[in-house]
Design a binder for these strands. Structure first.
Lengths: 111, 111
DNA sequence: ATTGACACCTAGGAAAGTCAGGTATATATG
DNA sequence: CATATATACCTGACTTTCCTAGGTGTCAAT
């Protein structure tokens, strides 16, 4: 797109993931479920989208990962926000608000 | 991303262009200026983004184009919304609102 | 015993945006 | 007059992101 700040539109998924992980350590499969639940089924994150995204966020140092057992006694990779990730999340949220406002400005212009 | 409705995040540019063209016939170069102005410099549409996008929208039957003279006596390609385009704009605006709300739901969740 | 939910992964392709180039005309500046 | 800047259009190569469509393995329920 086109934005001075190149982090959205593509980056909305990153934002959503980071925000959900910020709620507490959680594994990938559950992240997609949470996103779907909270968004009232609006967002449905495909696995082929989810896992590469998680690896991306981990590589950038925003998420840390650790294998642990779930409640149901299964192995799963639990992600948590790093300090860097928390900082980045703050920035992304602010950026999203700006972008959202900018779009609103244009959509609001009278014909 | 991930949305049930596949038309955004990528589609925000299309939305902005369609909305600006809906204000009245306008040529490409001016579209990018208008978007920048109205968004208070937030969006800066690169030419390499703009022109392919306009061709895309034209090919999909949402925009019509016609060569005309500008005020300053130069040739320029003026775009206007087709009926189909107007309908699509309505739909896109509604979709954007939904998506925006869905993101807001997630960003609003308390830690 | 098989199905379905859980939980992870990747490869290939399509779409969109950026960067960096290009053409041409009109106006302003030295 | 020459050159620079703004206007106005365009494209190709590259990158990133997402989706589709596969794959593995475990656990619970039928």
């Amino acid at each position: 797109m086109t934005q001075s700040k190149p982090e959205f539109l593509k980056g909305a998924l990153d934002l959503l993931i980071l925000k959900v992980v910020a709620l507490g350590p959680i594994h990938g499969y559950a992240i997609s479920q949470r996103i779907q639940q909270i968004s009232r089924d609006y967002f449905q994150v495909q696995q082929g989208t989810l896992y590469p995204a998680l690896h991306r966020l981990e590589n950038r140092g925003w998420l840390g990962a650790e294998w642990r057992d779930t409640d149901t006694g299964r192995e799963a990779k639990f992600y948590s926000l790093t300090k860097k990730g928390r900082k980045h999340l703050e920035a992304e949220m602010a950026s999203w608000a700006q972008m959202s406002n900018a779009v609103a400005l244009i959509l609001r212009t009278a014909e």
